[in-house]
Design a protein around this nucleic acid. Sequence first.
DNA 1: TCGATGAATGGGAACGTTCCCATCATAGGT
DNA 2: ACCTATGATGGGAACGTTCCCATTCATCGA
Lengths: 341, 341
Amino acid sequence: MPRRATIIEVAREAGASKTSVSRYFAGERDKLSPALCKRIAAAALRLDYRPNQMARGLKAGRSRLIGMLVADIRNPFSVAVMHGVERACREQGLALLVCNTDNDPELERTHLALMSSYQVEGLVINASGSPDAELQALTGQGLPLVLLDRELSAVQADLVGLDNTRALDLALDHLAEQGYAELLYLSEPPERASPRRERLAHFQAGLATRRLSGEAYTMSGSDKELQRAIKAFLTRSGLERSGNTPRALLCANGAVTLAATRALQRLGVRLGETGLMGIDELDWCALIAPGITTLAQPTEAIGRQAVASLLANSVSQTAVEPRQHRFEPRLIARGSTRLTG
Amino acid sequence: MPRRATIIEVAREAGASKTSVSRYFAGERDKLSPALCKRIAAAALRLDYRPNQMARGLKAGRSRLIGMLVADIRNPFSVAVMHGVERACREQGLALLVCNTDNDPELERTHLALMSSYQVEGLVINASGSPDAELQALTGQGLPLVLLDRELSAVQADLVGLDNTRALDLALDHLAEQGYAELLYLSEPPERASPRRERLAHFQAGLATRRLSGEAYTMSGSDKELQRAIKAFLTRSGLERSGNTPRALLCANGAVTLAATRALQRLGVRLGETGLMGIDELDWCALIAPGITTLAQPTEAIGRQAVASLLANSVSQTAVEPRQHRFEPRLIARGSTRLTG
DNA sequence: TCGATGAATGGGAACGTTCCCATCATAGGT
DNA sequence: ACCTATGATGGGAACGTTCCCATTCATCGA
């Protein structure tokens, strides 16, 4: 079983020194004479040489590795962003070490330690808990961090994510325009995740100016419970105006949209007549009866920006003020927010 | 900015030698006296020491890294398997380096080289092209490989994936049982991906014994084309029996199911009356009108088995005969294969 | 009492790089 | 002709580990 060739063997084969070979592969070919370059290239090809990244990482402290910590890898939003991150990394010649925490703060800590032990050069973090101490330690060591989607107040780092203010403005405008007057906002528990809090807050804040009435429900447990809450919202008599005003559900993210759709189907509700709108665009939103209206996040751009921020922060070692990169959602209007009456 | 502590510093702090500290962290604590263990533990804690995996990987040749090459990271099936792989790795103290090739054979080659340069200890490969030469080189170096879902005849490696024979038997049995007699099998181009070929072959092979008639259509291009093909299938007069026999569509994977569902909706077809069934279970299959019948793959198990195979092959250096691990799908019967008439 | 055994511990080379510094030739300015 | 700047190249230490090989010291059977 042939061992992999080392830089020394290439050097010997090419009749050069290991320094020259190292230079060649470190992209300093302009410092080498064309003749030497050619010899090294030939030798490397003959021996199928590839620089050992472990050795590189050890000596130079440059692992060329970016870590990405994802709260839930089965969330299509996360995967879509990851796709953007991956592309951006590739363009920079970086590899991506992915860790999924399954929303377990304990596992999150473990994985953070793991990534740091691999000397990652940057970390994209979609937090599940609040590993503040760990992250502070890492930034303290000069490791560039980017927070993805979820904010962590104790951590000085750039944030990339959705412009939640804009998102809720868009959503509320659209729903109001379409004639819905009473809204039920559905969200997962907002305590731990900052976008949930922000969205909820902006939902509440945006109602008055549009003369909408609305309330929020937090999905804590079972589908059953959610179904009951929706039913209660839909069947009770009008609040502000007399008679039955058009009502709509607004879902805080893709998971909620899924659960809400399920519940509405069980209740036998006709979409459109009862409005339904969700943040996050998913494959199937176009397929449910008249189509579900969504706000699509520019996931690819978010991913790319995450890497860009990382790179920017690793260049300027001086601790710059953390920046926020908020991206605009795109409204995809479909039948679920079209009153048929 | 504090540099990270090294093994030497821990040794000094603990009043021990670096060898002992190394032993401690390599899991050879039983070779150390309890007193020394305690001192080292305390020192490591005080200095927040973490072994440098790059150095480890260099010296011992053990990177503790597993590479996973995914053809399409936005495919929910791939992500689900990846989730299983990740869990299994975690249990073994392995980290996962993920590369997405976006179905680009060229990129696949690049990523293979990348992973090998990180000295991964095993490779899970969901191939997009046929990087035979590269993979042979890697196995030649003693790197354990596992093929995921897609077979590569030139490569001697275990395969984990779906039992496609069983899958098509299940599908055809179910459809026949439900009273459908004429089938249209929809697939993406079967040339390059072995499961597509296998499924198609077993579809064709399984028709006769069940007295089904069927044909296959390959989705090459636009939704429009697919829609036209489906329409042709549905509207032409009965083939074997006179009159209109019940007809059904069978989709080779999740992506096809999505496209077919879209097409059927455009055509205004009622599901059930026209049967629809797909391989791969997706979030939304339960949500489309009467529910779409699917064959669910045990993705988690597939992922775990991939890692298990890797581990098995890295222990026994003797080239064992490659094994195939074929998993049974689970039928989830829904309304889309229930004749209402 | 003594060498043999074995357990606990430590010193140092090696893993494959990078990078500082040295060397050497060539050329250019005086 | 000489000194120096410049460019091409190479030697060797170092990065933080692991692991082979000592070394020490207590224990034990004869």
